[in-house]
């Protein structure tokens, strides 16, 4: 403290207290620079999102604007690019049905596992299931696809006949992939329920199952649904794992055992093989746009559900 004091007196600048009250310009400058730097990096996110929305949208609506494809052509079920029939409805339906079915299979399992972790065996149940779900999240989707291709498809072929590829194989693979999402959201929901609600129920003489089924599941229903919808959204956008087991035929998705296609599978398979600028290629971009719109709809739905949940609590 003594040294700066002597320096100041020698240079006989404005009084020391004044000098100390005024921050150094250099410090102010780094302060401002830091602020700007971080602000710019967060703006990158907005720029990316908007350019993505603009690019994909303009590419996706181009074939309709240019008149290469009509809406009634696009939303029909006949897919035959060599005859100018670009009906994508069966792929849209395929995507929807496979993800809804996967969510329906996965929901009871995931919610059940969450109940096990929070209500039945909070100690060791959590110790086992927590790492299990974390590893399931970490496994790359191509690996799921490969296992589906080498285990599930042959299994279905032997048990039920047919090719093995199809809706059922897709649903099985996807339901395992979205399980972690449903489990972790459900666990969060159950944990947010105050302890005294459970205690009140037990004090009234209810059994554990009665408490779970009549109280916990009902109170946490909006939260559980959010988890299921999130899982469904993830299944809807999954590309490679689905493509590897779904069969890639243009059949309508109303049978568990016939090979079908989804939006993602048809895009993955054909985007690389079609000529840039051809109608076929442009229609694939329109499907990508549908995929984007569906994702946005899922987000809106989830937002609405969380808002409702917050209002209820």
């Amino acid at each position: 403290m003594a040294q700066p004091l002597s320096n100041e007196t020698v240079e006989s600048k404005p009084s020391l207290s004044e000098e100390l009250r005024k921050p150094l310009p250099k410090i102010l400058q780094t302060e401002r620079r830091g602020r700007i730097l971080t602000f710019v990096s967060s703006w990158v996110l907005i720029v990316i999102l908007f350019s993505l929305l603009i690019f994909i949208t303009s590419k996706g609506i181009a074939p309709f604007i240019k008149g290469e494809v009509s809406f009634s052509n696009f939303f029909s079920t006949t897919w035959n690019p060599s005859a100018n029939a670009y009906g994508s409805l069966s792929f849209i339906l395929g995507s929807l049905i496979v993800s809804v079915c996967a969510a329906l299979v996965s929901a009871p399992l995931g919610i059940g596992a969450a109940i096990f972790m929070t209500e039945i065996a909070p100690n060791w149940g959590r110790k086992i299931l927590q790492p299990t779900t974390e590893i399931l999240v970490g496994i790359p989707s191509v690996v799921y696809g490969f296992v589906g291709l080498t285990v599930i498809v042959p299994f279905i072929r032997e048990q039920f006949g047919g090719l093995g590829f199809g809706l059922l194989a897709g649903v099985i693979v996807l339901s395992i992939m979205i399980l972690p999402t449903i489990v972790s959201i459900s666990v969060d929901t159950f944990q947010s329920i105050p302890r005294h609600i459970r205690e009140g129920s037990y004090a009234l003489g209810a059994t554990r199952w009665q408490t779970i089924s009549r109280l916990l599941i009902r109170t946490s229903l909006p939260g559980l649904m959010t988890g299921v919808v999130l899982g469904m959204a993830r299944a809807f956008g999954e590309a490679l794992a689905v493509q590897m087991v779904i069969g890639n035929s243009t059949n309508l998705p109303f049978d568990l055992f016939t090979p079908i296609s989804t939006l993602t599978s048809i895009i993955t398979l054909n985007m690389g093989n079609t000529v840039q600028g051809s109608t076929y290629n442009s229609v694939l971009w329109s499907m990508a746009l549908i995929l984007l719109i569906m994702t946005l709809l899922f987000i809106v739905l989830i937002r609405w559900m969380t808002k409702r949940r917050d209002q209820l609590q």
Partner: peptide, 27 residues
């Protein structure tokens, strides 16, 4: 707006991100 961007970007299917990359970073 930044929060919304984070939410939307993190829930985009990776194939859509790949197609955006094809359009912008490749072509």
């Amino acid at each position: 707006m930044i929060r919304t961007s984070i939410e939307v970007l993190s829930s985009l299917p990776s194939i859509v991100v790949g197609l955006f990359g094809l359009l912008v970073f490749v072509q």
